[in-house]
Design a binder for these strands. Structure first.
Length: 258
DNA sequence: ACTAACCTGGTC
DNA sequence: GACCAGGTTAGT
């Protein structure tokens, strides 16, 4: 469940659950998790109180009372599950935090690609562009971020250094809103198109933020192009196509996205 | 700039 | 059995 809106919702749920609580114990239940959170790093966590939960792009940062951060990235399939420490952790639990009130937070991830690590500061994150929700994101800042980029706009938008928080689904949706062909070279877009794109990004992300959990229920409800190959475009009735860019699927309407 | 790799599970 | 999946990074 992992683009900006889903991570924002996850961070919100975690915040309500964990802020002010103290970590009693941690469990790294999968070898891949122990790779990013080796025992020497996990050892410092018990006794620490979680003082805040922050989100930056698709990253979550749990600020601890010693100033360090527990850094979580859900990658393709991570999510939080809440329960009691006494219960068995849920299926696909990869990492568990037992908290001082007897509750338990589990990172569930069927694919085990999520990462958990301890970082000294928020600067330790990989470089990120403006948040997709940042009011400062406009045609001019987007143009600056895209100049010299010869790659297709679809691929450029997946690059977190350009805009933070977008992923494969919402990039496709934002380009549909903006009526832009995902194959266009990123640096070739006019300011007028970039303005449409900014509005498309905003519209897509705001709708998703306002409907937490909707797309994680499995139905592509509310999506205009993603996973709708062969169906009719809501706007012009054209056929939605699927192409491959950077080894991932891109869905778009070749009739109204030019 | 492209590919392979990290993982597991669901679907054809 | 092969292929696909919402992400990212290390390697060519």
């Amino acid at each position: 469940m992992p683009e900006l809106p889903e991570v924002e919702d996850a961070a919100k749920r975690l915040r309500a659950h964990a802020v002010g609580r103290t970590i009693v114990a941690t469990r790294a239940l999968h070898a891949a998790t122990r790779r990013t959170l080796p025992p020497r790093a996990a050892r410092r966590l018990p006794g620490r109180t979680i003082v805040a939960v922050e989100r930056r792009g698709k990253h979550q940062l749990l600020r601890l009372d010693d100033g360090a951060f527990l850094h979580i990235h859900f990658r393709m399939a991570g999510d939080w599950s809440f329960g009691r420490s006494a219960e068995d952790p849920p299926r696909h639990a990869r990492f568990v935090l037992d908290l001082s009130d007897g509750s338990r937070v589990a990172l569930v991830d069927s694919r085990a690609l999520s990462t958990v690590s301890v970082v000294a500061s928020a600067d330790a994150l990989p470089p990120l562009g403006l948040e997709a929700t940042d009011p400062a994101l406009d045609a001019a800042t987007l143009r600056a971020a895209l100049e010299k980029r010869r790659v297709a706009i679809k691929l450029a938008l997946l690059d977190q250094r350009v805009v933070a928080g977008l992923g494969n689904i919402y990039v496709a949706e934002a380009l549909w809103h903006a009526r832009i062909d995902p194959r266009r070279p990123a640096a070739s877009l006019s300011l007028e198109r970039l303005d449409r794109l900014v509005r498309g990004i905003r519209e897509t992300i705001e709708v998703a933020l306002a409907n937490p959990g909707r797309y994680s229920t499995g139905e592509a409800e509310g999506l205009h192009v993603y996973d709708r190959e062969g169906e009719r475009c809501d706007r012009c009735g054209g056929r939605i196509r699927r192409i491959v860019q950077g080894a991932r699927s891109t869905y778009f309407c070749a009739t109204c996205q030019r």
